[in-house]
């Protein structure tokens, strides 16, 4: 499983920057929101976390279609299954790889973008923590949607339709967690809810992805 994660990181590194697409989208989305909101002022500070959370969500959504499509099309998935590697383990490796390659770089940029929007340190911390608590859920639903749509290439519109209903609760609690952190710290209810959502997402998303991979190979 570690070999698969390592290979995905190496492939991303050599992809000519394709793995940075999500990061670029994230920065551009927030920038456009700032411009649309008038550039500065209390409105920007009030809605900053929402812009950032939406940008994070869309940036990850953008990458769901790439998780399995190449490996399915070039025969890698069937060869992996033939080595005896369970599809669930493949899904788990892709889940870990997605967190490292897609959510990780965005996570690193969160404090920078947050300070650009004039957010306080505590709100930036709340934002980063909410993203960290939600990352397993985002990746699990991404892996599930990616596996379900792997045969359709990059997935297109359908992949968004499949994953959006699962991502909405994550967005709601993720946003609420930012302000709750300022008042209650990490013990706020929203963080526990996000942790619970992540566990549920992993319990549902990863086995579903494994089953979808088996069906796709067959």
């Amino acid at each position: 499983m570690g070999a698969l994660i390592k290979r995905d990181i190496l492939l991303a590194w050599r992809s000519g920057g394709a793995w940075l697409l999500g990061v670029i989208f994230f920065v551009l989305f927030v920038t456009f929101c700032v411009i649309a909101a008038g550039g500065e002022g209390p409105q920007l500070e009030a809605f900053g976390p929402a812009y950032i959370w939406l940008a994070l969500l869309f940036a990850t959504l953008l990458s769901f279609g790439d998780i399995f499509s190449d490996d399915l099309n070039d025969g890698t998935l069937e060869q992996l299954v033939l080595t005896g590697l369970p599809p669930l383990a493949i899904a788990l490796a892709k889940w870990a790889g997605f967190i490292v390659l897609t959510i990780g770089p965005v996570f690193v940029l969160l404090p920078i973008v947050g300070s650009m929007l004039g957010l306080s340190v505590s709100r930036i911390a709340g934002l980063a923590l909410s993203a960290a608590f939600a990352a397993p859920a985002l990746a699990a639903y991404g892996v599930m949607a990616g596996a379900l749509m792997a045969k359709r290439g990059k997935g297109g519109f359908l992949i968004i339709l499949i994953s959006a209903p699962f991502l909405i609760p994550v967005l709601i609690f993720g946003l609420a967690a930012v302000d709750s952190y300022v008042r209650f710290g990490i013990l706020a209810f929203e963080f526990r809810a996000l942790a619970g959502l992540s566990l549920i997402a992993m319990a549902i998303g990863l086995p579903a992805a494994g089953a979808a991979l088996t069906a796709n190979i067959e």
Partner: peptide, 16 residues
């Protein structure tokens, strides 16, 4: 998978 190894139409090698 304990018994067989398969060489299919697809090579399963990454261009990079």
């Amino acid at each position: 998978h304990d018994l067989i190894c398969y060489q299919g139409h697809q090579d399963a090698f990454k261009p990079n």
